[in-house]
Design a binder for these strands. Structure first.
Length: 260
DNA sequence: ATGGTAGAGCATCTA
């Protein structure tokens, strides 16, 4: 199975790139974030024409997450299934595709340390762990992937000094991410690439950051132990960040061995 | 130079 995750930063603006990329990469399952669409305007028919079933949890204008699949989409959950109140934003959708329980997540940005949105971000991670505990077990085939808006280690940003006092690198954010991982998930990209640094998934549009190598590794694929056992390859598709009208995020592409 | 660009949607907000 080949699957991928991609923050497209508006599916409406990115649809030509996404369609060409699907044909080029040929993933079986795709988790998308920041569609910025309402469910009524999600292009399910266009994806169907490319062979993908799809589910979308959107609100329009901001946020919005989706899953595309050529391997079936069952037991779909919009938002958290942790017994708590509905999330104020559309930031997580969960479905079983090809025997793997996928969650496509768009973790809140946080905006600034101490901001209300920063507290929302930390609480959101707690709800994510509760959602996992309520809907699956660590011994299941589980993948949680998307834009986590946290760089797990200092090596995951282009210059840690440039982020002093900023979000995405603070200990509370990293601890909140670690508590999700402690449920029973492994960072598949880090597993693949060991201690290599300067490997990023996001580059700000401004100031030529992409071409200057000023990036951040904030998009992650987390897999349970049974998924780790099937891991063959995990890579950032930097080509998708080049050329005409790119997203500011590049996709992560993962190959799993058959079975599981 | 506390900068820069892109996408939402039409004045700013978000990232």
């Amino acid at each position: 199975m080949r699957f991928a995750t991609w923050n497209v930063n508006s599916l409406k603006a990115r649809m030509p790139r996404v369609e060409a990329w699907l044909a080029d990469i040929g993933p079986d399952v795709v988790c998308l974030q920041e569609t910025k669409l309402a469910d009524a305007t999600f292009p399910a028919l266009a994806f169907q024409a490319l062979g993908y079933d799809s589910v979308h949890h959107g609100q329009g204008q901001w946020n919005g997450v989706a899953i595309l699949s050529k391997a079936g989409i069952d037991d779909v959950v919009n938002g958290f299934a942790d017994g708590g109140p509905p999330d104020v934003d559309s930031r997580i959708i969960t479905a079983t595709c090809g025997g793997v329980r996928f969650s496509s997540v768009y973790v809140p940005n946080g905006r600034a340390v101490g901001h209300d949105h920063y507290q929302y971000k930390l609480a959101w991670f707690g709800r994510l762990r509760g959602h996992l505990a309520a809907t699956s077990q660590p011994g299941d085939q589980v993948v949680v992937c998307g834009d986590f808006n946290v760089a797990p280690e200092d090596r995951d940003v282009w210059d840690i000094a440039a982020f002093e006092g900023d979000t995405h690198v603070t200990p509370p954010e990293r601890e909140a991410l670690a508590e999700v991982e402690d449920w029973g998930l492994v960072d598949l990209f880090r597993r693949q690439w060991g201690d290599q640094d300067r490997l990023y998934t996001y580059w700000d549009y401004r100031a030529g950051d992409f071409h200057q190598g000023r990036g951040m590794r904030i998009d992650l694929v987390l897999g349970s132990a049974p998924v780790v056992d099937r891991l063959q390859w995990c890579v950032v598709d930097r080509n998708a960040r080049k050329g005409t009208l790119p997203s500011d995020h590049a996709p992560l592409v993962v190959d799993l061995a058959d079975g599981g």
